[in-house]
Design a protein around this nucleic acid. Structure first.
Length: 500
RNA sequence: GCACCGGUGGCGAAGUGGCUAACGCGCUGGUCUGCAAAACCAGUAUUCAUGGGUUCAAAUCCCAUCCGGUGCUCCA
């Protein structure tokens, strides 16, 4: 079964493969590091993460390059306002970005490419275009791409040139262009602005050129897949194709992958709507990193996702069930799991079917919703068998193997939520953002929160009270802990507790 | 204005021509428990925005209407 994925360029679902027979070369448009990443950004990166994980699950090696845009108008403006050199300014946000990616369980790409470290490549690419008279310089020293010389322009986004021309807003800074549609390859700078002295003149790169130059540097003139958020389709990716193919005369990326925007509480996320959330905002409010990952992945990448706090609660609960089940199979406890001797072929088949369904769902254009459902089907069946003492060791093993497979994609079973929230809390403290921390988080993880030892002591008290059949005392302790977010569970195997 | 996507149970969401409309969360009742929790069992949409049409057969295709969202400009 091949892994198939919708290709924006062809408008069809097509199999993915490594055209060089070794590795699937993919380029993903990364962040512009001028601020902390928000959940919209991460929906895209999370689905790219699932894509690369799925590629590996299907036996293909990914070679994934992601860029960091560390120079652009906003960075220059904000760095100047902060009176910092741009690299000092961007370094903190780049660091934060990778911390956030890790918190969300994203794997690190095989290569990271920074725009400011690849100016030479961009300059030579523009020079190649200039030799063909496709790039031209205007009086102020900026260079533009002559769209009229690239007849395929618009093939990705399906735009016709006339429409663009009519709708184009003319930027007052961009004068002397041959056509309003032509886009900047190299921007002349004003004295004092961040700039590079190059054969093209003094200036800085246009936005699109970095991705063309860096993708080609790391992956070759032609490569397998290019990814990004849906907004990048036009003009960014369209312009990348134009620049690259006009220079090389070979196809740029074969397969284009675009992730749809999310809504927040039914509306487009924006600062003015007051529904704009960074990952850090959510962690400080007490939401778990794993629940955020799971929620953002629960709706397939080509569908709009409505991010809500109810949805986050739902995901938190769903993950609890997954983890509880995983622990049950792993430990044979909570509730007790007795191993049966007689094999139940119906159950064995069900587990195998779950495995097949999981794989098939991902193969079908990364249907993460269906893949998720396949796992829950198995969970219910195996729990039922376990409760009836009909689960055999081979079936338990097969279930664990399936969970492991599930987790190579979803990566939510391993519980690191508490440490991630603590790290966010430490960050808030260091940055003077304690006002953003919810009381719930402070109670659970702040300086006055209960230590594990203190909880264990209270639990021991309660167990003693229970042994004396002093249930009033036992329940009082349980309620006291519950108010502090600690949930106690009794079972035949003894008592366990967890932080809610 | 032009282009496009979507409207499925209380909520989220899969399914895009043919078995009883997945799955998750929630809720109700039961089993277990001192009581809870966890887990299980049963119940939770005779119906897929609305109206018309095509078809032996439609949530799935066509037309119209209403509603939500997106792009055309920096944006994941």
């Amino acid at each position: 079964m091949p892994l198939e994925l919708f290709n924006t360029l062809s408008g069809k679902i097509e199999p993915l493969f490594a055209s060089d027979g070794t590795a699937l070369r993919m380029y993903c448009c990364g962040p512009t590091v001028y601020d902390y990443g928000h959940i919209g950004n991460f929906r895209t990166f999370l689905h790219v993460d699932v894509l690369r994980r799925a590629i590996r699950m299907f036996g293909i090696t990914p070679r994934h390059v992601m860029n960091i845009t560390d120079v652009d108008d906003k960075i220059i403006r904000n760095a100047a306002a902060a009176q910092l050199p741009i690299n000092t300014y961007t370094a903190r946000y780049e660091k934060a970005f990778f911390e956030d990616m890790q918190a969300l369980g994203c794997e690190t790409p095989e290569a990271i490419a920074r725009a400011t470290e690849n100016i030479d490549g961009m300059v030579s690419l523009i020079e190649r275009l200039a030799q063909q008279d496709i790039a031209y310089k205007v009086e102020d020293g900026s260079w533009y791409f002559r769209i009229a010389r690239f007849p395929d322009y618009g093939k990705l986004s399906g735009k016709d040139l006339e429409g663009i021309q009519d709708g184009a807003r003319i930027d007052s800074d961009e004068y002397e262009k041959d056509s309003a549609r032509d886009f900047a390859l190299w921007k002349a700078t004003k004295p004092g602005e961040t700039s590079w002295d190059t054969p093209l003149g003094t200036g800085r790169p246009g936005w699109h050129i970095e991705c063309s130059a860096m993708a080609m540097k790391y992956l070759g003139d032609s490569f397998d897949l290019h990814a990004g958020g849906e907004d990048l389709m036009f003009p960014h990716h369209e312009n990348e194709i134009a620049q690259s193919e006009a220079a090389t005369h070979v196809p740029f990326a074969r397969h284009w992958f675009h992730v749809r925007f999310l809504l927040v509480e039914g509306k487009k996320m924006s600062k003015s709507e007051g529904n704009f959330y960074t990952l850090r905002d959510l962690l400080l409010k007490g939401h778990r990193a794993s629940a955020i990952r799971f929620l953002l992945l629960s709706v397939p990448y080509r569908h709009q996702l409505n991010f809500t706090f109810d949805g986050l609660t739902e995901s938190t609960n769903a993950i609890e069930r997954l983890r509880t089940f995983h622990q049950r199979i792993l430990t044979g406890k909570w509730p007790t799991l007795a191993v049966a001797n007689n094999n139940d072929p119906v159950l064995s088949n069900l587990i195998a079917q779950g495995d097949t369904n999981f794989t098939a769902s991902l193969a079908n254009d990364l249907n993460t919703a269906e893949a998720r459902a396949a796992i829950f089907d198995v969970i219910r069946a195996v729990n039922t068998a376990a409760d009836r003492n009909t689960l055999t060791q081979p079936d338990a093993d097969a279930t664990l193997a399936l969970l492991a497979k599930f987790d190579t994609i979803f990566a939510v079973l391993n519980d690191t939520d508490a440490e991630l929230t603590k790290a966010a809390l430490a960050w808030a403290e260091a940055e003077g953002r304690m006002a953003d921390v919810s009381t719930e988080v402070l109670e659970k993880f702040g300086a006055n929160s209960l230590t594990d030892a203190a909880i264990d002591a209270l639990v021991a008290d309660r167990t003693k009270a229970k042994a004396q059949r002093n249930f009033a005392r036992a329940d009082a302790i349980r309620n006291e802990l519950l108010e502090k977010g600690i949930l106690i569970e009794d079972s035949k195997e003894g008592v366990r507790w967890k932080r809610k």
